[in-house]
Design a protein around this nucleic acid. Structure first.
Lengths: 128, 128
DNA sequence: TAGGATTGCGCAATAC
DNA sequence: AGTATTGCGCAATCCT
């Protein structure tokens, strides 16, 4: 996508300012010869300024909106990375813990088998 | 936001179909009396159908877009929660590991110093 | 009351 | 040939 800027610069949009007749269920509504006079002067200097300011505000708002969306997407990516990092860390810690626990168990067994008196609090009941 | 459905139902937008004169840098461009004949019949049955289908497609596309944005935001929230969960787990594992390591160190010291184990893990180093 | 910010909507160009 | 996206302007609202 890239929206080549052809004659896109500015298209005259001339809304009739009249709510198109609601009877248009499936009808085409051929332009009735009676053109309702707009209650607002499109030629008014003030009108044009108002429109222009709004168009600017709209553009600004939309840009922000898009930026926000991109930021949010970025945030997702960052969080996913962080997540993986944390998972890895957990895996590592779990492994370390597992090793140490095994050592303890082994030690405990040795104590039990050698009839050595329990040297520390981590000893399970020698019998059973 | 809610866009109260006032007379919003359908506003006749009657673009002039002529790329507004490019000279409109800051100009107001008062409607020149010469109205270029649109090369496309706005009254054409086929035109209206085309427009209507496109309007539908547009609405659909925008809905998807918004939905996607919301989903992404939701994803962020989920990931943030998940991360907190993981952080907590890491904290816990680290603590466990720390305790076990201390026990090991203490034991090693006891062996090295050939000291009688105090039968309790909370014993300070006998020497210094 | 004024004025910017948002949002629904339709159009047209263009991407697919 | 047809749908999907996207930039744009308008007008109604919202929100200060």
């Amino acid at each position: 996508m890239q929206m080549t800027p052809s004659s896109l610069a500015g298209l005259q949009q001339v809304p009739q300012l009249v709510p198109a007749d609601p009877s248009a269920s499936g009808g085409k509504a051929a332009p009735p010869s009676k053109m309702k006079k707009p209650s607002v002067d499109k030629d008014s200097e003030e009108y044009r300024q108002r429109r222009e300011r709004n168009n600017l505000a709209v553009k600004k708002s939309r840009m922000r909106s898009k930026q926000k969306a991109m930021d949010t997407q970025q945030r997702v990516n960052e969080l996913k990375e962080e997540n993986e990092r944390l998972e890895a860390k957990i895996k590592l810690l779990s492994k370390e813990l597992s090793v140490l626990k095994d050592l303890f168990l082994e030690h405990a067994h040795n104590l039990a088998d050698n009839v050595q008196p329990p040297a520390d609090a981590a000893s399970p009941a020698p019998a059973q």
